[in-house]
């Protein structure tokens, strides 16, 4: 059984796809990948193919098959004009927008996006900032689909770094010079560790009500309060670990252990049984000292009274 988002309804409520249908989709997509892949490009002998142009239009079949869209036909988005070669001139203008399938998500995301720091760039240069600026549809996998959060963090942060670590790409969307990420994050202790363990959006989005917001916050509004994450009510529970926490709640109802499998977060991933045991031992020791001290005091009083 496989769940896919192949069409409008499918993207909103995951639909089961029969193995035979998957097989058909994969065969259809293989025809496109015959040219639009590294191997395809190298194997092409037709003289009428502009190989330089094709080189910029390749898909990594392996990454695609792992992505959310693995079981979506190429032509579901690249709708018309691509079946024949050369492809129709106007075909590129007819690629489906993401909201064709992701309509319901758009209802929620749009408001968030419009408030985001990225929307301002989109206003300055209409059409410059779209879904695919961040989410490569041939690669993107939802964070919850990764087997470890570290993998999800790597993918999601790489999306931000496409522009925020590239002068060239940054300049396409912003007139400002590319800020030095190391410098502006110098306040954040163990920066490399934070970057490997959590996503940029953990701090650069408001705390979500349900799922992660698309309202990307500017630096001055980003989370800088350590205990937002480093506390027992860590907002990581509703961000990075949301999916894992939900799963765990159904089985054991103890959030810390699942986060512990993934990362040690000071203040957030304390083992409550160890804490309780230590609390008890500390109480016994303090109580014992207090009782002993009191008994000494009373014994001393008695002695003094007896000795006059």
């Amino acid at each position: 059984m496989v769940l896919i988002g192949g069409g409008s309804a499918a993207a909103q409520t995951a639909t089961k796809v029969e193995p035979a249908e998957i097989e058909r989709i994969r065969r259809a997509n293989a025809q496109c990948l015959d040219c639009h892949s590294e191997a395809g490009l190298n194997a092409i002998t037709r003289p009428d193919v502009n190989k330089a142009d094709l080189a910029g239009r390749l898909v990594d079949p392996e990454a695609f098959l792992k992505s959310n869209h693995a079981n979506v036909e190429c032509v579901a988005c690249h709708v018309t004009g691509f079946k024949e070669f050369p492809h129709a001139e106007a075909a590129k203008q007819q690629i489906n927008n993401c909201d064709e399938c992701h309509t319901r998500q758009f209802l929620r995301i749009e408001d968030q996006f419009l408030k985001s720091v990225h929307a301002k760039k989109a206003e300055e240069q209409p059409g410059s900032f779209t879904c695919i600026t961040c989410h490569d549809p041939h690669v993107f996998l939802k964070a919850s689909h990764f087997s470890t959060t570290r993998q999800a963090v790597r993918q999601d942060n790489a999306m931000c770094l496409q522009c925020h670590a590239s002068d060239e790409r940054f300049a396409q969307l912003s007139k400002a010079p590319l800020p030095d990420l190391q410098k502006i994050h110098a306040w954040l202790p163990n920066t490399p560790l934070h970057w490997a363990a959590v996503r940029c959006v953990e701090c650069h989005t408001p705390v979500p009500q349900s799922i992660l917001s698309h309202e990307i916050l500017p630096a001055e509004r980003a989370e800088k309060n350590c205990v937002a994450c480093h506390s027992v009510n860590s907002t990581l529970r509703v961000r990075l670990y949301r999916h894992l926490v939900e799963e765990e709640r159904e089985t054991v109802g103890f959030i810390n252990s699942v986060i512990l499998n993934e990362a040690y977060v000071i203040g957030a991933t304390r083992n409550r049984y160890l804490d309780m045991a230590f609390g008890l031992v500390a109480a016994v020791v303090v109580g014992g000292i207090a009782l002993h001290g009191l008994a000494r005091f009373v014994a001393g009083l008695k002695r003094r009274r007896r000795d006059g």
């Binding site: 205990v227 009510n233 203040g267």
Partner: peptide
């Protein structure tokens, strides 16, 4: 303070404690 960090009851503020 770091181990039992609590935004409502900070013994020592997290970054200072660190």
């Amino acid at each position: 303070s770091l181990h039992f960090s609590d935004p409502d009851l900070p013994l020592i503020r997290f970054d200072i404690a660190r």
